[in-house]
Simulated scan of single mutants.
Amino acid sequence: MGCLTPAFSREMGEKLIGMGVWSGNGDADAMWNKAASCIREVASKVLGVSRGNLGGHKGDWWWNGEVQGKVEAKKATYTEWVES
């Protein structure tokens, strides 16, 4: 799985041109559906398909023991403040 580099962009463009995506045949809906289908197909072949982020949230990389300790301290302080 890769990101869209200039080389991948050129490769995708060449494949899409070869598929005749940009030919103006049919009504707007048919042209849109053909273009979208071809773009998805070429993108998955050239860039690969992500399986998603299994087991966690996207931003979990920064959540460590130090952060967790500070959050717990903040919650305890807040609880003390509310009870006073």
Rank of each mutant, 00 (worst) to 15 (best):
E83G: 12
A7C: 05
N33K: 09
N25C: 02
N64Y: 01
S23V: 15
W22M: 13
G24P: 00
L47G: 11
E80I: 09
K15S: 15
M1T: 08
K70M: 15
I39C: 02
T79G: 03
W61I: 06
G13I: 02
S9P: 00
G59T: 13
Y78W: 03
G65F: 09
W62D: 09
V42G: 02
R51M: 14
L4H: 02
K15N: 07
G56A: 15
W22Y: 14
K70D: 15
W61H: 03
G13T: 08
G56S: 12
A43R: 03
K74S: 14
G20M: 07
V71I: 14
S50T: 15
K58N: 10
E66S: 11
S9E: 06
G2L: 07
S37K: 06
M19K: 07
W81F: 13
N64I: 11
D60I: 14
G2D: 10
G2Y: 09
V71S: 04
K34E: 03
G13W: 00
S44W: 01
W22S: 06
W62R: 14
E72I: 14
C3H: 04
M19I: 06
E11A: 10
N25W: 00
E14C: 02
M19N: 01
M31Q: 13
Y78Q: 06
D27C: 06
V42F: 01
M31S: 04
A73T: 05
V67I: 08
W32S: 08
G24M: 14
G65M: 09
K74G: 14
G55L: 14
D60P: 01
K45V: 14
D29T: 10
A35N: 01
P6C: 07
I17Q: 06
K75T: 10
G20R: 00
N53Y: 07
A30L: 09
G24E: 05
G26N: 08
R10A: 15
G52N: 02
C38F: 02
S50H: 05
D27G: 15
L54T: 06
A36L: 10
G20N: 04
A73C: 08
K75N: 13
H57V: 15
E41M: 10
W63H: 04
E14K: 02
W32E: 13
C38R: 01
G24C: 11
A36D: 11
E80K: 15
G69R: 01
W63K: 02
K74I: 13
P6R: 05
H57D: 10
N33P: 00
N25T: 11
W81R: 11
V71R: 03
V67T: 03
W32I: 11
D29R: 07
T5E: 03
Y78F: 04
A30G: 06
V42L: 03
E14A: 12
R40T: 15
G18V: 04
G55Q: 14
N25D: 06
G69C: 09
